[in-house]
Amino acid sequence: MKFFNLIYSLFFRSNFFPIVFILTVIGIFWYLIAIPMNTEKVERKFKNLNSTEKIIQSWNLEKPKLPTPHQIVKEIVNTVFFKKISSKRSLVYHGWITLEATLAGFFLGTVLGILLALGIVHNKAMDLSLMPWVIASQTVPILAIAPMIIVVMNSVGVTGLLPKAIISMYLSFFPVVVGMVKGLRSPDQIQIDQMRTWSASSNQLLWKLRFPSSVPYLFASLKVGIAASLVGAIVGELPSGAIAGLGARMLAGTYYGQTIMIWSALFAAAFLAAFLVITINFIQNYTLKKMAILT
């Protein structure tokens, strides 16, 4: 009976079945669209094929215009499990390099963002002078600065992880500031007055009221921030000229027309993003439950 209930809720109550349905539709559409997109190459490569053979060939080309999902999965499995991790052909190696920069930048950005938010909430001059600029900077395509930061830091002699981490920091920093300012200001006036009647110092007000009530806001910004960090790290790998990392992998794929390589790097980036967001979600649920905000 329990099993039946589980199946029932999977199919009709939860989003499981609709998501699977839509993914299936996308998959079928993908295979169908791959046929016309790749026929040109198939016809150039093979002569005298009947239509069934043409279709099968169009799904298994070496450098297709649109690789099919099974080709991408094969490439990912191949480069993740069957290459040495230290090898430059291993996707784990490239993924790790991107992940390192992402996490370093994310950490720096979060710390800096929280500090700035504390300053803004506690100091009215900082609030009035900085907050409009922080908000305005959200409308600016900050990512355009990425190549400049990389090249300038390279010319000073700073290479490798740090320049990419700085771009990631830059991107994850703003969501954290905006979210934390909102969160630190979220306690009601009544609650603040209550703290005052207990003659709480402003330090106690911060640690016992403002900070705890900002935690849900913090996690919401962290999720936005880590996704932005990953994008920053990937874009940061472009100007250095395709050395290592998922972004470099994409660029190398563009240079050599290796479409399957681009797509596998793209999927790897997507998995990485999903993994990071889900991890933060998990920490969020755990923390909020411990804090009895989420029941």
Partner: peptide
């Protein structure tokens, strides 16, 4: 409602992905 329940979580997921990475593919196409 069925499509909505399928597309919303997927859409939220896709919004968090590094879509900029699609750029080289589109440049090829």
């Amino acid at each position: 409602d069925f499509l909505k329940r399928g597309l919303l979580p997927l859409g939220n997921f896709v919004s968090a992905l590094p879509i900029v990475g699609m750029a080289p593919i589109f440049v090829m196409w």
